[in-house]
């Protein structure tokens, strides 16, 4: 059920965005270099799990949200729209996981 998935992913995103922003603001107080960031994220299974969840929630949430916008504003409905949104979901998942693995490895 898309509506339930949308609501559930929104709840996950609310938590993830809050944790992400709070961590960034807290961590960067004294200035932080790229090397220091990588030092903390590389090999951290916890951050990998957290941001994997974040990417998954975005992958679910964004295409479902875009679906009625395409239908109501562009009158784009039917299978072609849903295939496009599936491709968008895969693109978001791919880009998100690529970025995540980039700071984990």
């Amino acid at each position: 059920m898309l509506w339930i998935a949308q609501r559930a992913s929104a709840a996950v995103l609310a938590l993830c965005v809050a944790v992400h922003l709070a961590t960034m603001i807290y961590a960067i107080r004294g200035g932080l270099s790229a090397a220091e960031i990588l030092g903390r994220t590389r090999g951290s299974a916890g951050w990998l799990a957290f941001y994997s969840l974040f990417v998954l929630a975005v992958t679910v949430h964004a295409p479902i949200g875009l679906r009625p916008i395409l239908g109501e504003w562009l009158r784009w409905r039917g299978a072609s729209r849903d295939l496009f949104l599936l491709a968008l979901a895969m693109l978001l998942a791919g880009l998100g996981m690529r970025a995540l693995l980039g700071v984990f490895r």
Partner: peptide, 9 residues
Amino acid sequence: VAGDAGCHS
């Protein structure tokens, strides 16, 4: 009433 034509829209 569920789905694109129904309450969820």
